[in-house]
Design a protein around this nucleic acid. Structure first.
Lengths: 98, 98
DNA sequence: GCAAACGTAACCTTATGAGTTACACTTCAA
DNA sequence: TTGAAGTGTAACTCATAAGGTTACGTTTGC
């Protein structure tokens, strides 16, 4: 309803942050203080932006706030969950009172 | 900077949803299709609103969207992380280019 | 006093983030 | 053309945490 398949945060990180500054994965991972694998997973959509990682990104790049990084992750997670768990079968509570 | 100690989502769930409708923990947990423990933990601030739980709440109460529930959780988590991990020591990347 | 509701401890399963190490592939420069 | 650097990723380990079931003690209301 609200949106179609929001890009995962790693895509934004690569395209809007690392590419413009011409930063390598190795370079950034070392700077952030995380393993190369951790960054790589995020960049390729197989890792999540955790609160701590959001903080690290905020400290390193200032620009997108930690809050913003996490909202990007949230949008992606919620989208995935809506696709997967569409048959949760929870009845509206309000219906009982209407 | 942005806010002081955001209430955990369970507080909102209890005060703004369950109390007004006079719903019990048992009642709601059964309706949502989760265990009483899972709901109780969230209500008492020792459990998190996961994407799936956010969807269940949205389906049951309609009013606060899943997205909103998750943003409440996010604000709480980020706040906690800022308190705990304040000494992450990540240098600004931009500084290098300024 | 009794029954219902509640918080929670104990225990188990599953999932995931993060790290290290290692390997294969690609690109680029000496 | 050979070698170094960067990259993606598999394998393994550790820690955390969500969710479930069961059970127990406490609180509350009829």
């Amino acid at each position: 309803m609200t949106m179609q398949n929001p890009a995962h945060p790693g895509e934004i990180l690569r395209e809007l942050v690392m590419n413009p500054l011409q930063l390598s994965v190795t370079e950034v991972s070392e700077h952030l203080g995380v393993s190369r694998k951790t960054l790589s997973k995020i960049l390729n959509g197989r890792g999540s932006i955790t609160p701590e990682m959001a903080l690290r990104l905020e400290m390193a790049f200032e620009k997108p706030s930690a809050d913003h990084w996490l909202k990007l992750q949230l949008a992606h997670d919620l989208w995935q969950t809506r696709q997967t768990k569409s048959k949760l079968s929870v009845e509206p509570f309000t219906e009982i009172y209407s």
